[in-house]
Each structure stands twice: as C-alpha cells, then as structure tokens.
Design a protein around this nucleic acid. Structure first.
Length: 774
DNA sequence: ACGGCTTAGACC
DNA sequence: TGGTCTAAG
C-alpha cells in the first residue's frame, strides 16, 4: 500500500529514464540484422509460439501486444521476427538483460543519485547537477544548444500539439523564467546528454521524464516514446493530472485504483480533488488516504534512493496445469535447477559487488485436489542463507518439506514414499534477500571466496548502508556491544539451534571451517601507541568503526567510488588493491606493515592455507572434508551449552571494546597475562595455531608491543553451517581472552578462556540476539 | 487450468 | 520477525 511522504522543501529535479522495449533492443544489438525489423522477444517457443515479453515499436504498429502468444503475433504481423529468451537449466534465463541493464545504470549514475527501479528503469535526482549548471552555465548563456535537448517535449508549452523547436528553445533559455523552470530546463539538458551517452556507449535508446518528483517524472517518461524526453513544468501539473485516468498512476493500476473508480466514482486524478484528506483517510487508512490526497495535487516526496543494485535475487518457474509437480523427486529436481541459478547469481553479486545475502526464501503455489481446504496457500519459508550450490539446494529442499508438511496439515497424512496424490505444485521460486555489502574487514571474506586480495570499504560506506551493522548512534552501540557495564548485553538463550530458525535443521555444534583471516588491515592489532588519529581519536567505541578507520587512506577512495557507482567496483577494486599492497610512504601504510610484523603471521598462514584449499575445493563443489581443520574441530569440541553465570560476564563489554571513557585508562594498562595463568586445559583446546599465536603475544620481551587489553587482536570470518558468516574476533579483556563470534545474521557467540584455573566452564557458548539499534 | 518471471514494499 | 499480499515491468 502506498505511503505518504512529505514533499521536501526546495524544488528538486527528478528524472525517470525508461529503456524502450528493452529486451528487444538487447536482442537487436546482439543480432544487428534484426534492427529496423518488427521484432518481439518470446519465451517457451514450444507452446503456441511462446509468450511475448517484449515487443519492438515496428511490431507494435501492427497491433502486436505484450502477452500475446507467438502465434497470434505472427497472425497480426506476419513478418515479425520472434527471438527466444535464452534458456538455461530448463527455464528462462534473463541474465543477458540484467547485465545490459547494469550497463545502462552505470552510465546514468554519473550525474546524480541514481536508483535502479527495475531491470530497465532508473530514477535520478539531478537537483545538485541542475543547480550547479544554473550557477555556472545557465541555459540562457548557451550559444549552441544540444539537439537532443531541443527535441524535448515540454508539457503545457505546445497545447496544439505542435512541437516547434523554436518554442522549446525559448522555454529552455527564458531568462525571466521561474527558478523552478530553470532548474527543470537544466535537468532537460543533463538528461539529454545522459541519454546520448547511453546511446553512444550501449547502442540503446531510452525515454525520460523530467519533473519535480518521482511520480511526475515517471508519468512523463511514458508520454513520448521511444527515444524522447518530456519535461513537466510546475505550472503544468494541475492540467496534466486533471484528466488523467487514475489507473495510469503508479500504484493505482490494481485494486486500489479500481476501488477509487467503483467505490468513490473517481475516474480521473482531478476528480480526486473533491475528497478531503479526512474522507480519504477514513476509507483507505491514514497513510494511503494522505498519499491519495497528495498525489491528486501532484505532491510526492519520495526520495530517489541511491541504489544501483537489486535488493534481492530470485529464480522461479511455473508448472501450469498438467505440468504440476506431484512428487517430491520432481520438486527436488526443479528446486535444484532454480538453486543453481540463484547460487550463480549470488556468487556473481559477491564477486562483482562484494555483497552477501543472508536470507533464503522458498515460495510455492500448490493445489490440493481432494481436500476441502484446498485453497489454503502454500506457506513461504525462509532460513539463513549459506553459500554454495549444494548448501542452497539442501536448505531449499528442507524449506519445501517444511512448507509441504504445513500445507498438507498435521492430519496424519504421511508423505513417505515419494508420491502423494493429494497435492500438486504449480510454481516454485527461490530467492535470496537481506543483501548487505560485506562489512569492513571484508577483504578477508572476499579472499576466502576468491582466493585473492580485494579492496575494502570505508566505515562510512558500511554505516550508510547497514546502520545495523555499524551503529552510529550511541544507543545502537549500546545495545550491540553493551557499553553499559551494569547491564550485561548478552542474554543467554538455551535453544541455540533456534538461531537458524526451525528450518532447516542445523547442527549447532558444527562449524564448517573455510576460514580466513584479515591480514590486510591494521585492525588486526590496535596500535600500541594510540597516536594515530584515525585509529584512536575517533574514539571508536565500536569495532567496525575502529577497524575501518584504519583503512581510510586507501579504503576510502575505493569506497567513494563505490558509492558513486557500485557497478564499477570490480575494476576499481583491482586498482585500489594494487596501490594497497605497494609499500607506501604514507604513515598509515607504514603502520600496516608494522602491524603485520608484530605478529599474526602464523595465524595468517593458517588462514591463508584455508583460503587456498577452500577455494580449490569450491571448484569441485564437494564440501566438508579435511578443510574442516583444526579450528572447526576445536570449536566443535567445545560446543556445549552449559549455563553461564553472571559472574563470568566480562567486566567490560563482551566484545572487549572499551567505551569512550574507558579507553584512555585501558590504554595505559598493559595486559599482564602470563601463559601459565591460563587454564592449560582450556588453552590446549584452542587450535594449535592460535595457541602458538597467543604464546607469541605473551612472551615477556614482546610485551611492550602487545595489544592493550580491551583491544581486538584479530578477526576471522567463518562460514558456518547455519549462517553464512561469522565474524570472529580474538580479543583481550580484563580477565579473559575471549574468542567472540559475531554472527552477521544476528547472534553473538562467545567462547571465553578464563584466566584462573578455578573458573569452571572453560568454554562457553553464549548466544545473544544481535538486538541493536533498529 | 496458464502470460512467465522478477523485484519491491507495506502490513501485522 | 517471517509470512502474506499488492503492484509493477
């Protein structure tokens, strides 16, 4: 349901850019002989010529419509060229179109905030660019103006329908024009330019609308197609909406729009004006009521989100009528196909955009022939997403079976034996959502997947995108890292397995160990001197902030770029990556080196080895094996969930990060463990490499260079059975060495190694919902 | 018992 | 929160 947003104060310049019959253009670029010919794209050519999903303008002239079957199209337009959408794994594969869409987005994002609205549409906020142009090179000062801009349509300008370039030129250059109109004129120039860039670089044409908000821009972009642009001056809004059928408005194409027509007798947007806001709220609720009242007046405050990438990925297929799936085996087969596609796309998203999805969801539709309640929907099910095709398949099948059990009901019907006659599946889809950029520290996780170095993001980047991952507000920090010493932030849940939800079944003791270690940031060790402003003066009370600040000199650049254009990450990452490794003269790089020398080398090697073998393993798609090395073994052996008493909660917050006030004090306190003070049985249970590391840290002669207590020693990432990744930190607290595992999915696991032998519970798993700021 | 396949967002 | 529903291209 639409939701009202207040219009922001100043006039904005918003553009909506829409590709013309995009799939057709993509195919025509691929096969140039199709250019100029009536063309349509179809899928599943087998039945009645397939279904049309895109129709070129030449074919539209002959009355060919989307949603015709191929046969009908042939009838309407005998010369039509029907191109099949690529098929992979028995289903339509849209990746070529997705990729082509990305090409376009990467160009359109150059002049302002850009939001990818669909595979072939974007919104742009060009306010800044338009203001800058108005200040530096206003249209009236231009001697020659761009042909494409001249071809703009300006609503309300040529009422008779004539579109004289001269009147358009006048409008664009009128010096006494309303400030808002001048901004729109600048917008028209900018958009014309962008569209030409798109054409030049991709060979695709597009249409655009330029207005003061998204709604109007969207409306305008469709008014003159193909390959044209339309401007909506403020003064034309009322006239534009007056006779516009409500159904044409975005969000009113469905039931809501029908309700306006049927229940209120409103057929045009203008007719909506007679209803008070109260009246509309009364009928449609506060949000929708206000929204309707606003759009009737051309008001829409929705921001253009700076987002170039999709928020989710999905792969689905329908099995209509007789094709309905009736055995678990056939369902499994198709789920596997869908999962393979999904997995491929997830992997590519990770490779190219450095993003990880956290939730896997299965949707299905089904019928139940025999039963009375056969219309009950098949329930969607979701669970934490684990990477790798095999895992995704396994989890998806489990989700399906859970859904099926529920669907069939607990009426005691057994699904044993693969066939059960009562049900049929008519559609399946698997999707991945909750996609977040790999949070800082990410180089390690990326290397784990890639087996090579990659670039990092700045903390700003992460905070912008994932406030939950790096809370910037004190309260967020509080709840996450527990800076209130009086209030232990860790709550102990006994039912640990619940973390992954009921499905799929997880073995909470098992931790797969493809592991990796971030050697590439100074965050691995907090600087001893505490002098570096980037690492200490920010007083980072949160490890994300702390660790990323250290990256700023080389990391920021990359991230700034990433912000502007996520799609270009790959190449930029490489660039930055090389700079990164070069021994530098800048202080921060020196520090990086220092940190490295200081001593995580063995752990580094350990994880490096894991990396290598893990990535090789991935090639062969076989999983669990000897790469489940010592770490996992050790962690496994410790996975008992004994109750933990309050007394054992570390004095400081459980992540070991000092609060602002504590920080200075802590820094003065050297960490004074002796190796023998640590319960040896506990110590011995650590992975040997980590034992070695700790011994190194504890050597007296090295003390001077030791990390202060309360500081993070090292970070690792562990993909595990029931979540995609954990961030693992080894850090020192006042009484303990803690190995804390922060699940990016929402749990904090802590293993503490206590100083004194008397302390029971050498290893504890503490589970805490990551109950932070949001 | 067919338009197929995707994405996004709001509600509870 | 997960699950459901609407809407759109």
């Amino acid at each position: 349901m639409p939701v009202a947003r207040p219009e922001s104060s100043g006039a904005r310049v918003i553009a909506h850019v829409d590709m013309d019959c995009f799939y057709v253009q993509v195919e025509q670029r691929k096969q140039p002989h199709l250019r100029g010919q009536p063309t349509a794209v179809v899928q599943y050519n087998s039945w009645k010529g397939g279904g049309l999903i895109a129709v070129g303008y030449e074919a539209r002239k002959d009355g060919v419509k989307r949603s015709m079957r191929g046969d009908e199209a042939k009838k309407a337009c005998p010369q039509i060229q029907l191109v099949q959408v690529p098929v992979a794994r028995g289903k339509a594969d849209l990746s070529t179109y997705r990729n082509a869409g990305s090409e376009v987005v990467s160009i359109l994002a150059r002049k302002g905030r850009c939001e990818r609205a669909s595979i072939d549409e974007v919104y742009l906020d060009l306010t800044g660019a338009a203001e800058a142009m108005l200040a530096e090179a206003p249209p009236e000062s231009l001697e020659r103006i761009d042909e494409e801009a001249l071809k703009s349509h300006v609503l309300g300008l040529n009422e008779d329908g004539s579109n004289l370039k001269e009147t358009v030129r006048e409008w664009l250059q009128r010096s006494e024009a309303d400030h808002r109109d001048k901004l729109l004129a600048c917008g028209a120039f900018i958009v014309a330019d962008l569209r030409m860039q798109v054409l030049k670089e991709t060979e695709f044409t597009c249409s655009a609308g330029i207005a003061h908000n998204k709604m109007l821009a969207k409306l305008a972009s469709g008014m003159n197609k193909p390959a044209q642009q339309t401007v909506v001056p403020f003064a034309s809004v009322e006239g534009l909406l007056e006779h516009l059928p409500v159904k044409k408005m975005k969000q009113l194409g469905g039931k809501l729009g029908s309700s306006l027509q049927i229940d209120l007798g409103v057929n045009t947007v203008g007719e909506l004006l007679q209803f008070s806001e109260d009246k509309l709220q009364e009928r449609y609720g506060v949000n929708t009521g206000t929204w309707l009242w606003n759009i009737a007046r051309g008001i829409s405050g929705e921001e253009v989100e700076g987002r170039l990438l999709p928020k989710s990925h999905g792969s689905g297929k329908t099995f209509p009528g007789p094709q309905a799936l009736k055995t678990i085996a056939s369902v499994e087969h198709w789920l596997n196909e869908l999962c393979e596609e999904l997995s491929e796309r997830l992997q590519s998203d990770l490779d190219v955009n450095k993003r990880i999805a956290h939730t896997l969801t299965l949707h299905a539709t089904a019928f139940k022939s025999s039963d009375s309640e056969s219309h009950r929907n098949f329930p969607s099910k979701s669970c934490p997403l684990r990477y790798g095709p095999a895992k995704i398949k396994e989890d998806t099948l489990n989700l399906f079976q859970a859904g099926l059990r529920e669907y069939i009901g607990s009426s005691g019907i057994s699904t044993h034996g693969s066939r059960y006659r009562g049900w049929g599946i008519t559609s399946l889809s698997v999707s991945a959502s909750k996609i977040v950029a790999v949070p800082t520290g990410t180089c390690s996780i990326l290397r784990y997947f890639h087996g090579q170095d990659q670039s990092c993001c700045s903390s700003e980047q992460v905070k912008d995108r994932f406030p939950e991952a790096a809370p910037s507000s004190p309260s967020g920090t509080e709840s996450y890292s527990g800076s209130h010493p009086t209030e232990p932030p860790i709550k102990f849940l006994k039912e640990e397995a619940r973390i992954g939800g009921a499905m799929p079944i997880v073995d909470e003791n098992e931790i797969n160990t493809e592991v990796c270690m971030r050697e590439d940031t100074c965050a691995a060790l907090q600087p001893v001197d505490g002098q570096d402003p980037s690492c200490s003066s920010q007083g980072a009370h949160h490890e994300f902030i702390q660790e990323t600040s250290a990256l700023s000199s080389s990391g920021t650049q990359c991230c700034t770029e990433l912000n502007q254009n996520e799609l270009h990450m790959e190449s930029q990452a490489e660039e930055t990556g090389t700079k990164y490794l070069r021994p530098g003269t800048r202080p921060r790089e020196q520090k990086r080196k220092l940190v490295k020398d200081k001593g995580s080398s063995s752990i580094l090697r350990l994880f490096q080895n894991f990396n290598n073998s893990a990535s090789q393993k991935r090639e062969h798609a076989t999983n669990i094996d000897e790469t489940q090395a010592s770490l996992s073994l050790n962690f496994q052996s410790t996975g008992t969930f004994s109750e933990l008493n309050e007394a054992e909660v570390p004095k400081e917050n459980p992540l070991g990060m000092p609060t602002l006030g504590q920080q200075d004090e802590l820094r003065r306190d050297a960490w004074d463990y002796k190796i023998d003070e640590i319960d040896s049985t506990v110590f011995n249970e650590l992975p040997p490499q980590i034992q070695q590391e700790l011994r190194a840290w504890l050597r007296p002669q090295k003390r001077a260079n030791l990390p202060k207590r309360g500081s993070t020693i090292a970070h690792y990432f562990l993909p595990t059975k029931n979540t995609s990744h954990y961030k693992v930190m080894l850090y020192l607290s006042c009484n303990t060495i803690l190995v804390s595992m922060t699940s990016l999915c929402g749990g904090i696991y802590t293993i503490s190694i206590n100083k004194k032998e008397g302390n029971v519970h050498p290893f504890k798993w503490r589970v805490n919902k990551l109950n932070s700021s949001h």
